[in-house]
């Protein structure tokens, strides 16, 4: 069992624009409206980088910035775990389209932006942070696995870690084989010691169990799970928003599920 504390959260998806403004929606106090996201332009990135960054990078940095600003942490010593199921499919689409032509000319910037750890690179450059950074994926389980990877770092290395889990809309024609139709991103700053003003205490373990994975009891929110793999974070986010102690069960890899016991901070 791994115990970590949630210091702060960032969130960005249609109808869920920012953690603070979304709490009422997540608890069912306000109706979900699904309003589409505006063009994101996180101020944390220097203007030159903001121009160069792809929509995936801007989505990831947007939630990371929100979580950072709501915490007491200094970005320069915050380790990070970036989790994405599919990486930057818009860039993959552009590269593969160019590589299907006779000339095969591809843009160098687009190529270096195509690496799975591009958002992590942009973040650490903007933060001036030499701290360690992991970029992982585990298909539909990327949120659960990313959360566990961040928690494992918190517990074994006794340091604060930010998880940034994001997936952008998958473009044509790849959307026929991977139907991610909305953007969804959340960032969670975890620490080993109880913070003065935290959001929750989490106790994580991996279990082989036949019990059903958790769902959000709000149908409009539950529907998001089929539109973006990172929306599988919603049962956890909903419980934290409602300061509602209890269990959350998420599918993990192999035959295992991630069991999260959520407590008030």
């Amino acid at each position: 069992m791994i115990r970590v504390y949630v210091e702060s959260i960032g969130l960005m998806a249609p109808g869920l624009q920012g953690w603070t403004d979304s709490k009422a929606v997540l608890t069912g106090a306000t109706t979900y409206n699904g309003q589409a996201l505006p063009r994101l332009s996180p101020t944390y990135l220097p203007p030159t980088e903001r121009r160069r960054a792809s929509t995936s990078v801007r989505l990831a940095v947007q939630v990371a910035q929100e979580a950072l600003e709501a915490s007491t942490r200094d970005a320069a010593d915050l380790a990070t775990v970036f989790a994405s199921s599919d990486g930057d499919t818009e860039i993959i689409h552009n590269l593969c389209t160019s590589l299907a032509t006779e000339e095969k000319l591809i843009s160098p910037t687009r190529f270096h932006n195509s690496v799975h750890n591009a958002p992590a690179g942009y973040w650490h450059i903007a933060a001036g942070s030499p701290a360690s950074s992991n970029s992982i994926c585990a298909w539909d389980q990327s949120f659960a696995v990313g959360l566990m990877d961040a928690a494992v770092q918190v517990s074994t290395e006794q340091r604060s870690v930010m998880l940034c889990a994001y997936d952008m809309v998958v473009p044509e024609p790849l959307n026929k084989v991977r139907c991610t139709s909305i953007p969804f991103a959340t960032a969670i700053i975890l620490s080993a010691q109880k913070p003065a003003q935290g959001l929750a205490e989490l106790r994580l373990s991996l279990k082989a169990t036949d019990n059903d994975v958790s769902k959000v009891n709000i149908v409009e929110l539950d529907n998001l799970v089929s539109k973006n793999p990172m929306a599988r974070a919603l049962p956890l986010l909903s419980r934290i928003a409602g300061k509602d102690p209890g269990h959350v069960l998420l599918q993990s890899t192999g035959s295992q599920k991630l069991c999260i016991e959520v407590d008030r901070p």
Binding site: V115, S135, I136, D149, L206, S252
Partner: peptide, 12 residues
Amino acid sequence: GLQGPALTVSTA
């Protein structure tokens, strides 16, 4: 036939 924790690290 392995069923435990699994992930891909992709940091170039």
